[in-house]
Design a binder for these strands. Sequence first.
DNA 1: ATAGGTTCAAGTAGTTCA
DNA 2: TGAACTACTTGAACCTAT
Lengths: 532, 532
Amino acid sequence: MMMTAGSLVNAEPFKHAHTTTSEPLCDMSYRFISSGSPLFRHSSSEAGNEVNDNNQPRHKPALKRKSEESISDPSLAFHPAARGGFILNSFAYDAIQSMHRGQSNQSHDIVPNTLPKISDPHRRSPETQPTRPPSGSVPHGSRSFFDNDEDDSWKVCGVCNDKATGYHFNALTCEGCKGFFRRSVKNSKTFTCTYNNQCSITKSNRRQCQACRLRKCIQIGMKRECIMSPDEIQMKKTLVLSNRIKRATMQWVPMELTNDQKILLDTICSAFIQSNNLPEKGVIRGGEEVRQDADKGSPCSSPSSSSNNSNFLELIKRIANDIAARTPSNMTNPAHVVHFTDIMEFSIKEIIKFCKKIPTFMDLDLKDQIALLKSGCTEILFIKANYTYDLEKKALTLGPDILYTRDSFLQGGMSVEYTDNYLKFHEDLSALQLDDVEMSSLSAIALFSADRADLVDQQRVENQQEALALCLQAYSESSWKVRNRFAIIMSFLPRLRTLNSLCTTAFSQVKKQFGEEIRPLVKEVQPTVENA
Amino acid sequence: MMMTAGSLVNAEPFKHAHTTTSEPLCDMSYRFISSGSPLFRHSSSEAGNEVNDNNQPRHKPALKRKSEESISDPSLAFHPAARGGFILNSFAYDAIQSMHRGQSNQSHDIVPNTLPKISDPHRRSPETQPTRPPSGSVPHGSRSFFDNDEDDSWKVCGVCNDKATGYHFNALTCEGCKGFFRRSVKNSKTFTCTYNNQCSITKSNRRQCQACRLRKCIQIGMKRECIMSPDEIQMKKTLVLSNRIKRATMQWVPMELTNDQKILLDTICSAFIQSNNLPEKGVIRGGEEVRQDADKGSPCSSPSSSSNNSNFLELIKRIANDIAARTPSNMTNPAHVVHFTDIMEFSIKEIIKFCKKIPTFMDLDLKDQIALLKSGCTEILFIKANYTYDLEKKALTLGPDILYTRDSFLQGGMSVEYTDNYLKFHEDLSALQLDDVEMSSLSAIALFSADRADLVDQQRVENQQEALALCLQAYSESSWKVRNRFAIIMSFLPRLRTLNSLCTTAFSQVKKQFGEEIRPLVKEVQPTVENA
DNA sequence: ATAGGTTCAAGTAGTTCA
DNA sequence: TGAACTACTTGAACCTAT
Ligand SMILES: [Zn+2]
Ligand SMILES: [Zn+2]
Ligand SMILES: [Zn+2]
Ligand SMILES: [Zn+2]
């Protein structure tokens, strides 16, 4: 005889006498098909993050339930209202018990047609909830001396007599038979018995005749309907995945800063702030300003002296206005060019000061310091410029009145592409509202870019950058309690690269025209591009 | 067929004959939506941190319910008013019961047209409040011998025939079906029956077909509307939380003073009282008084000699009146100035005496003692002055007759801002009615301010202040049995700071004019401000 | 007392991988 | 194959406001 996973053999006689409808007996409750809303409106469970600081143990475990049942059953039996169904069931129940006790599994061979299958203990008993028998009904003595032992004797696999782990597909079975039945049904397997379809299945031989094993599975009441269809499985998988994502998002715990990280960030941040000065009077040339000697009059003001810039700002403003008035827009204006490059030079010096205050930077080989500075300087310049960006006016500022708008840059000789990119960069960065620590970290991370040309100790730079990035992540997560902020900040690094190269290209043009006006430091940071 | 938590399938045939409006029958009164406040707009369901601070052991209620029921039943049965509705219902009930017992689910097919649906016991009957049938209608004998047994036979879950625990979402159901229905609705679940949508639901198999279980839930009248929306839940949680806080506040136990704290407070308080003398005759100059030598005639009277001030007070009063008479208001009067500063000097000496009697103060480095005194003295002065404040007259007093009103201060050379702040300070402080212990503690706490300039051992001062604050808290809580008093007292500290700096500013002006009149000690406590 | 919501151990699907 | 795992549903026992 052939045994097919799909066959209905023996399914019929097991129907309850009084149950005319085909009543599914297995627990399908886990089979959660879909939550209506695609959003995370509800968790699938009844979640809600509630804190329970009650010190009492909440649940008296398991035993309580058992005892309640053994109490409630008899009373129900006496109750007139319970007569019909309940008495019947308690009969059936007793029958099951007595059968189960001594001679557990001949029932399949001997009894099948003489006793309705309802009494098979391996089927889920219809009325008693945890189908395990109440403790009192266990023969006798087994629990009288040792009350603490777990009575798992009733948990026997209906198929192979191995220890059962619970109800699976509507029958009490072991893990093995559970898996076997699922695989058989899912893959629509068909087995053939090599013997005479009468193999008795035991724990040790259950693997030897799949046909008889499957037959026994169905005999004891395992149900095909309880195996999820591929569709259901797919749906469940999708759901589980989305739940996982949701949970990962929710359960995320912000990273904490270590002490070392705090110190590092602190060092970098204060170095950054200290080199955030405005230029002193006379360093930046306007249109008619006379060129001053590059060596003389270092523009580095002391960190605390940034208060008396007002006169200077007045001057700059006057000059800038002057230039603007005399220049038709959309044309490169030499005065503008000089103005911009002077600002750049001043800022570059500040940036060098900043870098020199980073200990891990100073630990690098001098050649690498120079290399990193040469290429990173412009990027830091971009970052620092953001402090002066006015989000509403979409322009960089110098003091309260001077604006560097899109036109200013174009007149300063920069390309449209660069200018638009540059202003968009500032717009986006401003929207993020980075604090000083984040600004300085970002600058430092940009500085420690291991892919710059000609590094002596590339690995070291890379390690430093990694460490800095970790600092920034911990900082952003712990101070803002937001998860994605770090990633967003880091996404500005590639943009800085783009800007850098655009700037270099655009600047090459400027240098061709105004080479002699541009200070050497600026030239060094902005190498000439051949094909510009 | 698919079963959705939202579907109304099969709701129609069960509509009450007389209930034309689709009016939810479930009791929604518990749904206390505190106010229409738009503030409680929390994102989604899983938010909300609820604190369960119930320390009581959780078990015991169940039995109580039982006994109460068995008492109330008979009386209901005999009550004439109960007849009509109840009897009718009990009839219907029996019919349904017998139907349910054997052949559970034909009821849908057979009964609907023969029996008005009003009699379905699983729906909440609109007329009779507890829909349970009177116990008398139960056949017989069940209650004759055992009066303590509960007659719960009428409580049968309309979905699965399990024992019902009451009405849930408008139908008599068990806990399981209650939870199942809530989860299904809340998560907008959609189930599919693996069979033919005709599964009969019983206690034992209810888990096996969610689709049919949910269908039955809706059939017997469970209502989606009765499930709270996430918003409502959030509001309820907020309410519960605020109630808990309220309760916790009510249960608050006042802090107790330790012995050490008592000793410390006692020391400080007696030191404070001992230095609370009124000035002796001749120490305070009025308008025409001749200046006395600063060295000679120490103003420090012995603590016990504060009784013979009456003559002096007479004098002061005469002088003060004299001054007031001769001075147009709103103008600085030199005599007033001298008068005020002399009072100040005397008080400062008293304060120094007070501080020197505080052991923990004397343990400090001498430099720190001086530093704390220099800055704290004025603040203590303000506090002590409160003893002379007359809440009704809104003026400081010297004895029963001399008043220092707002005008007096202005004439004494103080600014309007300072004067108004100062008087408001006294008004508020007086309203609190601090006792001597509190006054002295507040003074001491003001004294031990670690943020004063140039402290040698800042940490020590801070620790002392903390200890003192704890003392004051314990004292205030234990003696007044009020929780917020301590916080209110402490809130005067920042006000003292403000007053201090306002005073210094105002006093600088005075010093410019009347420098030579002001005694050196006063000058020291009130440093000159440059930009005054 | 009633009837909402919440909690969490127990139960039972599917999945993984030696 | 099946022991060990994850994940989700259940429901008794709770909590709370009305
Ligand atoms: Zn097995
Ligand atoms: Zn075989
Ligand atoms: Zn139920
Ligand atoms: Zn079904």
